[in-house]
Design a protein around this nucleic acid. Structure first.
Length: 271
DNA sequence: CGGGCGTCCTGTTCGC
DNA sequence: TGCGAACAGGACGCCC
């Protein structure tokens, strides 16, 4: 489900729903078996602490407290929703916390690829040491990023999804970015010119921003924290459009599997 | 060693 | 209609 735009939207939703200074007055745990066992003890230590901020890094949601971060990764199907007053627990709800005002925030995750984790502030840098550059951060050095990409042997589509170099791009947006850049997904990252990389970085930022503006992409079940679906899927040029006609040249869109993931492209527009 | 593949899960869709 | 296979937004460990 969630790539950078979807996670960013959820972070913005949660920032609105969870005012700075909010305090968790109670935790509830329903089933501990997420990707990693839910760290109950550490979560309980966050009780009565004031929320400082909610941020995003890569595809992670960071709830910042005075001394720790509560990290949430949504995996494929994770979601946070708010419940006010009496509410019905769902089959895939794993945990929730409640504020003094009675609002509850519930984490649900059918496929259980997501997880929550508590990290001391001093440990955050090392925890995220393996993560690459943020595509929407104006501090990102795209010249350096280009150098790194050019040293890879992998196809560009696989490279774009590698979170060690560039974060936030997943299977949907990788296909969309390469269509906009007019480059075939199978083209080797090392064979792409510097000027083509400039195009790729430009379209990466543009597409991710547009997707955020439209509330992300809903393929099947992604919903933001208000329960609302995204609209960016209506703007897809290639993802999920196998055999449909290219919006630019009207050739049928092709689909193949690369590194185990469905990949979509136009054989006429992309070289 | 870099990179590809299988794997962790459940739910839905597809094809026979 | 029914049932099993294939597939789905991520990311890690293992193996070549």
């Amino acid at each position: 489900m969630p790539e950078l735009p979807e996670v960013e939207v959820v972070c913005r939703n949660l920032s609105e729903l969870l005012p700075i200074g909010s305090k968790i007055s109670a935790w509830s745990f329903y089933r501990p078996d997420l990707r990693f066992k839910i760290p109950k003890k550490q979560l309980l230590l966050l009780q009565d602490q004031a929320l400082v901020a909610i941020k995003r890094r890569a595809k992670y949601i960071l709830f910042e407290f005075k001394n720790e971060f509560l990290i949430s990764h949504l995996g494929m199907t994770g979601s946070w929703r708010r419940e006010v007053g009496e509410w019905q627990k769902n089959k895939h709800d794993h945990l929730s916390f409640t504020l003094k005002n009675g609002h509850s925030f519930v984490y649900s995750d059918p496929r259980r690829f997501g997880f929550v984790e508590v990290v001391a502030k001093g440990q955050l840098v090392s925890r995220f040491a393996a993560l690459g550059a943020e595509p929407l951060d104006k501090e990102t050095d795209f010249e350096l990023l280009t150098d790194k990409f050019k040293s890879l042997k992998a196809p560009i589509k696989t490279a774009l999804m590698n979170q060690k170099l560039l974060v936030g791009v997943g299977n949907i947006y990788a296909s969309e970015i390469l269509f906009a850049s007019q480059i075939r997904p199978s083209k080797l990252a090392s064979q792409i010119t510097r000027s083509q990389y400039l195009e790729i970085w430009k379209h990466t930022a543009r597409i991710l921003k547009e997707a955020i503006q439209l509330g992300g992409s809903t393929i099947d079940d992604y919903k933001n924290s208000y329960g609302k679906a995204g609209d960016f899927q209506q703007k897809f040029f290639v993802y999920g459009r196998e055999l449909e006609l290219c919006r630019i040249c009207h050739s049928p869109i092709k689909q193949t599997v690369m590194a185990g993931r469905s990949t979509f492209w136009c054989s006429n527009c992309q070289k």
